[in-house]
Amino acid sequence: MLAFFLVRLRLAALVLFVVSLFAFGLLKLSGGDLATTLAGENATAEYVQFLRTQYGWDRPILEQYFVWLGHVLSGDLGKSFYFGGSVTTIILDRLPVTVTLGTMAVLLALSVSVPLGVIAAVRPGSWIDRLVQAFALGGQAMPTFWLSFLLILFLGINLQLFPISGAGSLAHYVMPAMALGYSAAPAFVRIVRGGMIDALAADYVRTARAKGLGTGKILFKHALKNALVPLVSVAAVQFGFMLGGSVVIETVFAMNGLGYLAWESITQSDYPVVQAIVLTVSIFYVLLTLAADLLNAYIDPRIRLR
């Protein structure tokens, strides 16, 4: 297990190194001169040059990368052009909103997907199974921004059930979590459905039935327990995806999280913040994937031998 852990850890470190190159290189190649952007519309060419020198953008690119990497490794993500303060502080300030939203979305998706997956598996091919599959297909096909606006229209404007924008109370998270959760639900539904179909065909379920156990016990205590194992690792990865993938949702609902920060920073060409967000989200994603791998390896020892 330790050897497996070390191999995965090395891989994760390699991925993070590539991500650092990508984060640094992405904005350098994105078009638009940073000094010009920072200086503003009416700035003189001398002032633009002054900024270019001050921020070291006139130095060789490789030198710029290593200086930046050195700071990152010491926990200094730089200073925001737009907000003025430390990028580390800004990121830490925004993280709770995104984590809360991601957690609510995953929980919401699981609370809907697991029962639906079970129902669909109980009668595969039936109309109810098809209905569940249609629900899953909808989640996969529907763009999150469109669903967000539908929710705003029906629950926000027509019924006035939930506040439309902001993150001031738990109520503010309901519609964004629904929109974000629905995009994750299809994967969960399919895994639960597939797992349940396999489990219900297994010998131990037949034995449980022969013992005269009730429907609930067979479904939820025996079959579902086994069907849920792969769901744990998928949910972990989906959670990582949500931390990075909530840019649209947070922007639409004006939630003060990392996604909204990403949008703002890209709009303002706030170079250090965009880099830091890409890095932070990637680290989360890599760590969650690593955790999911280890969990799988712990549950299923065959994986360690591959």
Binding site: G156, I157, I164, G166, A254, Y260
Partner: peptide, 18 residues
């Protein structure tokens, strides 16, 4: 002063009176 980045959301908030 409320920051609402998405113009469609601004429109929705105007319609609800928020």
């Amino acid at each position: 002063y409320r920051p609402v980045p998405e113009v469609n959301t601004q429109v929705a908030e105007l319609m609800t009176g928020a």
